[in-house]
């Protein structure tokens, strides 16, 4: 039995070390499949998630960058964040709400946060907070790559709007996050629903 146990422990160690637990995401997005095999880089990524109801979520990595971005956002929209708020924000991931709601949302406990329905980040031209997030985020780290993670049923106008916001910020190169086409399935069998 010893060799088997050795093997079992080896595998346990392997899986334990390779597993990275996925952070809690506020929304589940079913990305469309594509044949593209380019892997998404793991660091310096700024993600805009569009779900099928047309809500926009935002995420960027790097604690320091997040801290800097939320500080700037607070100044820009005159929302006062306490140092604890900023610290909490820096360890979070994706969020989808206006900066005003963020202020009330951050002090909540994780269980309470989940109960609140996210409205998405405002993207209309009068209250374009997404644009400011992108701007301040890139200010904090110019190396950010931009990725759009859209649900396959997301309507096109929202995606178009997000792309337009990116272009307004002089970002003409970005990534669309997709999942790999299932093996054996012919390409572009798409849309047969």
């Amino acid at each position: 039995m010893t060799p088997m146990v050795d093997l079992a422990f080896l595998l346990v160690t392997f899986f334990m070390l390779t597993t990275k637990f996925r952070p809690d995401e506020p929304v589940i997005v079913d990305t469309p499949s594509s044949i593209s095999e380019i892997k998404l880089p793991t660091i310096d990524i700024m993600t805009m998630t569009v779900d099928k109801d047309g809500r926009v979520f935002f995420d960027m990595d790097g604690k320091a960058n997040r801290e800097q971005a939320i500080r700037k956002m607070g100044e820009r929209y005159s929302v006062q964040f306490t140092p604890e708020d900023i610290k909490r924000f820096s360890v979070l991931t994706t969020f989808g709400m206006s900066i005003q709601e963020l202020k009330n949302w951050l002090p909540l406990k994780p269980e309470e946060r989940k109960k609140i329905h996210d409205e998405g980040i405002p993207i209309d031209s009068l209250n374009n907070q997404l644009s400011d997030w992108i701007n301040f985020g890139r200010h904090a780290n110019p190396k950010y790559r931009i990725a759009i993670k859209g649900d396959q049923d997301a309507d096109y106008p929202t995606i178009k709007r997000v792309i337009a916001i990116l272009q307004d910020n002089k970002i003409n190169k970005f990534n669309l996050i997709t999942s790999l086409e299932a093996e054996g399935e012919p390409v572009a069998v798409a849309g047969k629903k």
Binding site: I38, L40, A147, N172, K173
Partner: peptide, 20 residues
């Protein structure tokens, strides 16, 4: 660990938009 691990990292397609 075997059941919770997902190995597939998301894939991406790169796009260059024309300068507006």
């Amino acid at each position: 660990f075997m059941l919770t691990t997902t190995f597939s990292r998301p894939k991406t397609m790169e796009i260059n938009m024309p300068v507006k």
